[in-house]
Structure formats: structure tokens, C-alpha cells
């Protein structure tokens, strides 16, 4: 039986991101790259890694109740509502909540670039998106290791705003992690996180192996507008 985990704040050392992922965020479909652009992307990725202060926090909560309308957790006010999350966490005994952020330095650099260099801002933004995804992968791996230690399994990671889990859950989600104090993540009135390169996510801790570790496009609320799938890929690779 899992024993509970809380990581108040931990630095993540992410030393590289996948170049093809950065290119994918830039809408790349195999066009020939000039040496200038090639070098520029490498330089920007390196600067992004240098400026980022990747941090995560993580906390496990036991599942109190899974009803038709949602999932209630022990010792926290976060209520996970919607059909998709109920299905996702069907036999979970526990959920692991986590948040990652690259810190405000990235937003400051994006703002500087928005005032000085639009192209650089676009490349930097793509690099930062790839980097926060890697940071979140690293956090997810910790959750998986925690589950494995107890002979349990994780389901794929799920975030507020995905499927029919409302973005409105962000406030309680961050509170359950004390993420404003620990990582400096704040919310706008429309529930967007600042620093903008921040991710909140959860995985279920299940007694049985879960069918896949990657989210699906079928319940993605953006699937109607997706331009990535038209190119034969998904935002997960």
C-alpha cells in the first residue's frame, strides 16, 4: 500500500530538449532549414535552458470517493469533476498531483522579446514549451516510481482544462500543492497560470496496469481546432 508522498519544492535539472519537438511547435513540416535559422534555434534553446529555473512540487492524496459526478480526495478541497476524469481514475486508490514551472525569468525574457524581437519570441516560446513538457515528464516519472515502489501503476497524466475537467479546478489544484508559496505560480481571474510556462497535472495510482501512458485526442477539447493532427502527428509526439 502506498505510504504518501509530499515534495514541497524540488529543482529539476533538465539539460536538453528535443530539437524536433521545438520544431514541431514552430509548425515545421520538413522544409529545408537555412544554416542561420538552424543556428538560431540551437542558440535560443540553449538560452532558454540557461534562463529557466525548473521546479516542481508534488503531493499524493488518497481517493475518498468516486461518484458519477466526480472524484473527492482526502484532506483537500480539490474536487475533480467531469465524466472523463471519473473514467480515468476508475479504480485509483490515490492520486498524485504535481505542478512544474520554469519560473518568472522565462516570462520576463518573453516580455523582453515581445518588445524587441518577434521572431525570437516565437522560437523562445517554442523552446520553453518543450522544456516545461520535459520538466513535467520528469515529475511524472517520480510519480511512476512512487507507484512502482508500492507495486502499483500510474495512469497517463491529466490536467485541468483537458477533456471535461474544468479549468476552474486550477485554484484548488494549486492550493493542494501549496504551489503559490512553493513555486510562485499564480492564477489570473480566467484561471490561467503565471508564470505562463507552468503545468499542473495528476496521475492516478492504480492497483492494475493501465492501458496506455499517453493521453488521447478523442477527449481533447481542442481537437476541433487542432492543426497538428492534420500533419499526421499529435502534440504528444
Amino acid at each position: 500500500m502506498p505510504h504518501g508522498l509530499r515534495i514541497a519544492r524540488e529543482a529539476l535539472a533538465i539539460g536538453s530538449v528535443s530539437r524536433s519537438e521545438v520544431l514541431r511547435y514552430l509548425g515545421y513540416q520538413g522544409q529545408p532549414l537555412s544554416p542561420e535559422l538552424d543556428r538560431r534555434i540551437d542558440d535560443t534553446v540553449a538560452r532558454c535552458i540557461r534562463i529557466a529555473r525548473s521546479r516542481m512540487c508534488m503531493a499524493s492524496y488518497a481517493v475518498r470517493e468516486i461518484g458519477a459526478q466526480g472524484v473527492a480526495l482526502e484532506g483537500c478541497t480539490l474536487r475533480l469533476t467531469g465524466h472523463d476524469i471519473v473514467e480515468h481514475l476508475a479504480d485509483a486508490s490515490e492520486v498524485m498531483l504535481f505542478a512544474t514551472t520554469l519560473g518568472a525569468g522565462i516570462d520576463r525574457e518573453l516580455r523582453r522579446l515581445s518588445l524587441t524581437d518577434a521572431l525570437e519570441q516565437v522560437i523562445f516560446d517554442a523552446a520553453a514549451t518543450a522544456l516545461v513538457e520535459r520538466a513535467t515528464d520528469a515529475a511524472e516519472a517520480r510519480a511512476r516510481a512512487y507507484a512502482a515502489e508500492a507495486n502499483a501503476y500510474t495512469s497517463w497524466r491529466f490536467s485541468p482544462g483537458y477533456g471535461d475537467l474544468p479549468l476552474g479546478a486550477q485554484g484548488d489544484f494549486l492550493a493542494a500543492l501549496d504551489a503559490t508559496r512553493q513555486l510562485g505560480i499564480t492564477l489570473t481571474p480566467s484561471d490561467l497560470m503565471v508564470p505562463t510556462k507552468s503545468v499542473t497535472a495528476l496521475v492516478g495510482i492504480h492497483p492494475t496496469a493501465q492501458p496506455g501512458l499517453v493521453s488521447s485526442c478523442s477527449i481533447c477539447s481542442l481537437s476541433d481546432f487542432c492543426t497538428i493532427r492534420q500533419t499526421g502527428r499529435t502534440c504528444r509526439g
Partner: peptide, 14 residues
């Protein structure tokens, strides 16, 4: 036509 992607469009604009 897809022979340029976004950063190329922007580099040209620059």
C-alpha cells in the same frame, strides 16, 4: 504552399 514555415515567414518579414 507550405514550402516556408513560420520562422521563415518571420525572418523574411524582419
Amino acid at each position: 504552399k507550405g514550402t516556408f514555415f513560420l520562422p521563415q515567414l518571420m525572418a523574411s518579414a524582419e
